[in-house]
Simulated scan of single mutants.
Amino acid sequence: MAAGGELQLLGSWYSPYVIRAKVALGLKGLRYEYLEEDLFSKSDLLLKSNPAHKKVPVLVHGGRPVCESLVVVQYVDEAWAGTGPPLLPGDARDRATARFWAAFIDDKFFRAWRELFRSTTDSQRAEAFRSVVPRVETLEQAFMECSEGKAFFGGDAVGLADIALGSFLVWIQVVDEVSGTKLLDGARFPGLAAWAERFLAVDAVKDAMPEFERLLEHYKGFLAKLASPAAPAGYS
């Protein structure tokens, strides 16, 4: 278990990417100092730690930064391999599969869902929802194949692909609330719907997730600004 001053996590409370890092650290039982970042007025520490992208999360371990959420999750798993549950499987092919689906979530699912997230009219939301559903269909099939009837993408325990997708779950709920949609409909996607309930019940996940009502108000404020002539640069 890391000493309190050894690990720092630079993040923003509403970022699903920061949630990934928090879940990984929580599953490993690691103590760390959390530093909240204002993404519209970034700290010198963030700019110094991640000069390439200037984004969160950044995990600072012993004064050295590790950037990008999926990289952070894998770093935590490797650096504390003997602590807590493994986040990646031992078999090389299974590790490759987990990394493939984590990349799919960011490259395909998120890019489609982001259009729903940024929609401000009913017509935009309807079109965006139709576009993201095929990505969810692919993930439903992937879950059935990867889990082999077990609780998570990673089998019996939460793994990389679970963290990658699960970090969006409260955001998905918030967008559904505003849009009048139900993306992980249990009738249409029974595997993912049941998986989401199990994932959100994990203690390390509950500790990492933002509170629904707070996130809902934050999202409504974002949409109001997005609809104004001077739209914010965040969430791109």
Rank of each mutant, 00 (worst) to 15 (best):
H61E: 12
P85V: 07
I19C: 10
S119K: 06
Q173S: 11
G29D: 06
T120H: 03
A164I: 09
V136A: 13
E68V: 11
D44W: 00
E137D: 14
A102Y: 00
A164Y: 05
H53Q: 14
V202I: 07
A230K: 13
G180W: 07
L169R: 04
E68W: 04
S119W: 04
Y17E: 15
E217L: 13
V202S: 04
W171L: 14
E36W: 08
L183G: 03
Q141H: 13
A204D: 03
L88E: 05
I172R: 08
R198L: 02
P85G: 09
C146I: 04
R214L: 13
G155R: 13
L160G: 10
V66E: 09
Y32R: 03
F212Q: 12
E115N: 10
E115F: 01
E68A: 10
E137W: 01
L223M: 13
D106F: 07
V202Q: 08
R188I: 02
L87S: 05
V175E: 06
P190L: 06
E213L: 08
P229W: 03
L215G: 02
A233K: 15
E177V: 03
P65W: 06
W80G: 09
G4E: 14
G90C: 14
L88Q: 01
A227F: 03
E197F: 00
V71F: 00
D94I: 01
P232C: 15
A164G: 09
D91Q: 04
A96Q: 08
F104P: 09
N50S: 09
A233C: 09
K206R: 15
F109N: 05
P210G: 08
W171K: 01
F129I: 02
S179W: 01
A187E: 14
A224V: 11
